[in-house]
Amino acid sequence: MVPIFFAYFALVSIVAGLLTVSLRNPVHCGIALLALLGHVAGLFVLLHAEFVAVVQIIIYAGAILILYLFVLMLLNLKTEERYFHRRHAWYITGVGALTVELLMVLLASRFSGAKGPATVAAVEEIGNSTAIGILMFSDYLLPFEIVGVFLLGAIVGAIVLAKTPSPADLSGDER
């Protein structure tokens, strides 16, 4: 049963991912992205990472995607959305050939990756979110704090770049 579900989630994720970047209407792209995020969450469930799956749905599908749609709405891309470069056909052929070759190489190799200490049984014993919480605030405290600083930088950076220059700033040369 698990391989069938895996094949379904994986294939639909790939197709949805391709549609996200190839569809012309930005809203359709958004919907395809939603499908992608939902199916990746399915993959997490198959891996017994239920907490990550739920976080994926709430944060990515729930918050970030909505933000994307807001931006699309504000930008109103209508005039620029419909064009097709004939050259793209060549790119797609090239990338497709490369992908097939990579797949052939990868499929020829052994699939059994190494197992870390956090096996399904070990995680089930203390519970999904407990395990993540404990690790995040003990062994992985440093990366967690760095992410905090990173997000601070991102917020301040967004403000600095979005702040409209005041007329005084514009008195100089225009380049």
Partner: peptide, 27 residues
């Protein structure tokens, strides 16, 4: 740890992205 190295790299790059755009009046 590759995770820590990656986060450091992102923190560095993010600040550089912002600083690259500091001349907001210049396209």
């Amino acid at each position: 740890d590759l995770l820590v190295i990656y986060l450091g790299l992102e923190l560095m790059s993010l600040s550089l992205y912002v600083m690259a755009g500091f001349k907001r009046y210049a396209p």
